[in-house]
Amino acid sequence: MDVAGDLEARTSKMIAYLIRRILYAIPILIGVNLFTFALFFVVNTPDDMARMQLGIKRVTPDAIENWKQQHGYDKPLMLNRAASGTGKITDTIFWQKSAGMFVLEFGFSDDGRSISREIATRMGPSLAIALPTFMIGLVVYVSFALLMTLFRATALDMAGVALCVVLMSISGLFYIIGGQFLVSKLWHLVPISGYAVGEDSIKFVLLPVLIGVVGGVGSSSRWYRTIFLDEIGKDYVRTARAKGLSELHVLFRHVLKNAMIPILTGVVVVIPLLFLGSLLTESFFGIPGLGSYTIDAINAQDFSVVRAMVFLGSLLYIVGLILTDISYTMVDPRVRLS
């Protein structure tokens, strides 16, 4: 058998698949864009945005006109009847504000800052929280689930499941409020909030990561446990055990290995979204990431920023979907890309 040829065929197939998927992503992104655009311009007229930005005291109608003109909101929304040729479409708020996004040019926020630059600088802190939370979480959840599987149908397992259910019945807000209160306020172990760049960031990151991990224990461990149990009920495991292999051996060598396929492919989709950070954690801990950026933008009704974040979110989600498909073929060559 020509191994090299096979590999080549697979690679070219993969590339063709990728191109198809990327092409498919474009209409989706256009749909997302149109949808949010429509939604936001029902909410906010450009006058509203101007008033929001101009503040409280002594705002004259002239100032509002001026602001709209400077920020490009004095054009028609979707169709410019006054313009000629392609200008009918391009000389509109919609075109001006969203065409650039497809080449990741997000333009300027309503308060005049470059959105692309802001996203670039805020991605770091977001990842500094989200990535450790994700990785440590995965290890902790899988170990916990394995432990429960090992002791399945005993009191220990029952207690573990009960603990999971209780943990997942607590609102995420309480984990944060409680964690800050205990660890930072009472015990003085880490700073309550804030962030620093580089090495200093560790002490700021510890608590949010811990809370993030604890907050996810309930649902994730329980889910992984069912996956393990599913796997353990399969014939090959019974056979292995019948051969007299030790429980631990079976669990690690066979069950864990096979169960990792659904687990990993299940989490791949969220990896790109880690960039977006967590809304709650970031704003409670004062971490200057994309999550708090989003919340600020919602509160300030900064249309440009929110739309940029929506676009980025959708883009990353689609990337996640593609990665998921690819990871399926990697772990299981039988899956064909279609």
Partner: peptide
């Protein structure tokens, strides 16, 4: 592992003479 590394970091932080919760 997480707790261990957590603790290690805290100890490191304590070693530089500062308060642990000093931002």
């Amino acid at each position: 592992k997480y707790y261990a590394s957590c603790l290690l970091l805290l100890l490191l932080a304590a070693c530089d003479g500062g308060l642990w919760n000093n931002p």
